[in-house]
Write a protein that binds this DNA or RNA. Structure first.
Length: 499
RNA sequence: GGCGCUGUGGCCGAGUGGCUAGGCAGAGGUCUGCAAAACCUUCUACAGCGGUUCGAAUCCGCUCAGCGCCUCCA
């Protein structure tokens, strides 16, 4: 029995508002689409949280044996600025400000995005399509929606006719909205006179003369609407229906709602089986966002150069911090929480280091101990299969970390486990830390040289200690400590860790 | 105004009907020349009120507090 059969996944589907058993459309294969960034500015830490959460999900699917096609787009056309009628494209606007080619902007921020994700140890997706690379397909879909009578053209712009769509289908089922209510309440912006109804949305927008990102289309020069690129690219690479569509909660409405409408209107099929939404990173209980001014960039985080930060924190500490909460809960940022996470992360990685250094030696098997370890291994999978509960998984990993420490301290012997169980323990304990949760050791510099020098100093210190020259002994330890190298005297000799 | 979410011990955060995660911090102990680490033990919870139930942090209702979406946003 394969792992994915042994530990079937259940996940919370935003569409049905309930936890469901995960059954991919094609056995063994999973198609997953996640809305990527709009590359007109640097991604901040809140953005990163979502991508980190889906990276963890992607990694777990792979770990238990699924073949996954993971598509995460780059939105490089830019979304419409505030009022649709302004016809302002964020990337075009930025380009004019900075006197650069639009694609230069796009490339710059795409590179930055990739650099950031690499530092947080995210796996690259299988396909990373860009909106500008799929203009033809978007034009085709606009035409298709016009042909089907569910869109209309006004002055070179094309709008999706939500009211008409809702006659046969139901608009708003993902976000729990009803169009009658949306029609009467909410803000009506007077300038949206091109639209027949205020809830209609643009799928193609005419470019104003000053608009530099533009393409030819049957309706004149323009650019595609915001929601269209995800529909087009997910359909192209994953098919008309696919398994998982993810994104941040703030995309639920209108973005994902519109995606459903576009797909259903075009293909007649519901595009997505399971909708997954990650929750927001908050600061003092408020969503981290650029407009609120409470966001900061990963670089600022690492360097500790931001008024919200007491000091710098590493990428892996933040990744660990993120994994301590469930992806669907808000996570509140604070210096205290990050400091606590840093210590926890170090403790876990010390356990990882011990695990990689252990080798099996036969002994007397302790059946009770053996049973407990087997149970813990099972819990790793059960917790991750339960809606990707990384927080519970970490709790089990910490229990196993205590076991690792006990092996090291000699409180337990590896021989108390059967060889098979020992091997499973090491395989999955380290596998969950690195492959599933994506945590890794952070060490910089010339490790060989550093370890050689430190080992030499430890030897000198031990000589001094044997001679009871404690003044020198302590001086070596204190001076190393000042450089970030901590010495720990144990029964088996002195060990060191680098902060 | 509409739709939805949250409120857990000093802090962060799991948990969804009985078996009281975990991390950080605190207390005591073991080890140690001292220290650190590690190990063992240990303290402090479920916003308030009412209801359902043999039994609720967990289900239902109300109240209070906070948040998200409805406009670009992960």
């Amino acid at each position: 029995m394969s792992l994915k059969e042994q530990y079937p996944i259940t996940l919370y589907n935003t569409l049905t508002k309930s936890k469901e058993k995960f059954e991919p459309i094609h056995p063994d294969r999973v198609g997953m689409y996640v809305c990527g960034p709009t590359v007109y500015s640097d991604v901040h830490l809140g953005n990163v949280r979502t991508f980190m959460s889906f990276d963890m999900i992607y990694r777990y699917l792979l770990y238990i044996g699924y073949k996954v096609r993971y598509v995460r787009n780059i939105t490089d056309v830019g979304h419409l600025e505030n009022d649709a009628d302004e016809g302002e494209d964020k990337i075009a606007k930025k380009a004019r400000l900075e006197q650069l080619e639009p694609m230069e902007i796009v490339q710059h921020y795409t590179n930055g995005f990739h650099d950031v994700l690499k530092q947080f140890n995210l796996l690259p997706p299988s396909i990373e399509p860009s909106a500008t690379g799929h203009i033809m397909e978007q034009i085709e879909m606009v035409q298709d929606l016009l042909d089907k009578g569910l869109a209309y053209e006004v002055n070179g712009s094309v709008y999706f006719d939500v009211t008409k769509y809702d006659e046969k289908h139901s608009y708003g089922k993902l976000s729990g909205r009803k169009i009658e209510e949306m029609m009467e309440s909410g803000r009506m912006l007077d300038s949206q006179d091109e639209k027949r109804n205020k809830i209609d949305f643009a799928i193609w927008k005419k470019a104003s003369p000053s608009h530099i990102m533009r393409w030819n289309s049957p309706w004149g020069e323009g650019f595609p609407g915001w929601h269209l690129e995800c529909t087009v690219m997910s359909t192209k690479y994953l098919g008309e229906t696919f398994d998982i569509h993810g994104g941040g909660m703030d995309l639920l409405f209108p973005h994902h709602e519109c995606e459903i409408a576009q797909s259903v209107a075009s293909t007649g099929k519901d595009p997505v089986k399971y909708w997954l939404h990650t929750n927001m990173l908050t600061v003092n209980g408020q969503k981290m966002s650029k407009s609120l001014g409470n966001s900061f960039l990963p670089q600022e985080l690492f360097a500790g150069e931001h008024e919200l930060l007491d000091r710098g924190y590493s990428a892996m500490v933040v990744r660990f911090f993120n994994l301590q909460s469930h992806y669907s809960s808000t996570l509140d940022f604070s210096n205290e929480a990050l400091t606590a996470a840093e210590k926890g992360y170090k403790r876990l990685m010390e356990g990882y280091r011990i695990a990689t250094g252990l080798s099996y030696q036969a002994g007397t098997v302790d059946t009770e101990f053996e049973a407990k370890i087997k149970q813990n291994i099972g819990e790793l999978f059960e917790n991750m299969s339960d809606d990707f509960n990384s927080a519970k998984t970490l709790a089990v990993l910490f229990e196993l970390t205590t076991t690792m420490n006990n092996f090291k301290a000699g409180n337990n012997q590896v021989g108390q486990l059967s060889e098979a169980t020992f091997n499973e323990l090491i395989k999955h304990y380290t596998g969950f830390i690195t492959d599933v949760l994506g945590l890794k050791e952070e060490q910089e510099g010339n490790q060989q040289l550093v370890s050689g020098v430190v080992e030499m100093l430890i030897k000198l210190r031990n000589d001094a200690k044997a001679a009871k020259n404690y003044a020198l002994t302590d001086k070596i330890r204190d001076d190393l400590k000042a450089l970030g190298v901590s010495l720990k005297d144990g029964k088996e000799g002195t060990e060191y860790t680098i902060d």
